[in-house]
Nucleic acid binder design. Structure first.
Length: 279
DNA sequence: CGTGAGCGA
């Protein structure tokens, strides 16, 4: 499966890591006098290298296709609410967890390779029942991640429609993971965020100047057919390229990059939504 | 300045 492309995204499978963890885990389990059975270890998984813009809900969407989850626990900095990039998840059934580990370890999600492994248990407190009230998906969002969230919600809707469509051909356990609802649906229409702060702008024509600059800068990825900077936002710039490939290049090149002291994000916008916005 | 991988309250 290594090197295979899923959703136009390369998949890297790293069996050595998983294998290492498995050995360590089973030895630990044996040493502990059999508190953990060979099945149990697969229920709880460590998921690392998660893109920082993904929420607990996103993680759930990505891993739930393998089977029902008890909880998803994405670790965040309590101060800022920012993701720390790793999570613990628990499946109701160990067999599902095994599938998830094998299929999702190394999965290139939003530009990062997911690390999925067995949990290295802490010595004490191992049977905390962590019930997860999952309606906290909107807490501590910066204005930047809020727009990304809206992005993802929009993407999720179309995903659900597509999944409905595929339902009759889907087996119980998908061979390949169902399309995760991630902000990575490639399109030629793109939104940049945090490109400017209107409060800091003084020139009367700053918005036009900015559009011209951004357009010129972005022509290296492909022909820019349309651009619009939203002056009532915290730096939104919408771009339509001439091809999906160009949009992908732009997102890959620009997302996370720094631009005049601000870190910008670049996400795909479904073309239909884009068109509806600007007509 | 810049989330590097990271095994939790």
């Amino acid at each position: 499966m290594s090197g295979k492309k899923l959703l136009g995204i390369p998949v890297l499978v790293q069996p050595s890591e998983a294998e290492k963890n498995r050995y360590a885990m089973q030895q630990a389990a044996n040493a502990m006098g059999g508190t953990l059975t060979g099945q149990d270890v697969y229920q709880r998984l460590y998921v690392g290298s998660i893109h920082f813009s993904l929420t607990e809900d996103d993680i759930r969407q990505i891993f739930e296709p393998f089977g029902p989850l008890d909880f998803v626990n994405l670790h965040k900095d309590p101060e800022t609410g920012r993701s720390k990039g790793y999570a613990f998840i628990q499946y109701k059934n160990a067999a599902d967890g095994k599938q998830a580990l094998e299929k999702m370890n190394g999965f290139d999600l939003a530009g990062r390779n997911l690390k999925v492994g067995l949990v290295t248990e802490k010595s004490s407190s191992m049977n905390i029942v962590n019930l997860d009230d999952d309606d906290s998906s909107g807490v501590g969002l910066t204005s930047l991640s809020r727009t990304e969230l809206m992005q993802k919600l929009a993407a999720r809707r179309t995903d659900m429609l597509e999944e409905e469509h595929e339902k009759d051909t889907q087996p119980q356990l998908p061979l390949a993971p169902a399309r995760p609802a991630i902000p990575t649906k490639a399109s030629r229409t793109v939104m940049l965020n945090n490109m400017f702060n209107p409060a800091e702008e003084t020139e009367p024509d700053w918005i036009q100047d900015l559009e011209a600059d951004v357009k010129q800068e972005c022509e290296q990825y492909g022909r820019v057919e349309h651009i619009h900077a939203n002056e009532d936002s915290l730096g939104e710039v919408f771009l339509k390229f001439d091809s999906v490939a160009a949009g992908e290049q732009a997102v890959n090149a620009l997302n996370g990059r720094w631009f005049g002291g601000k870190q910008i994000s670049a996400v795909f916008v479904p073309e239909a939504i884009y068109d509806a916005k600007f007509k």
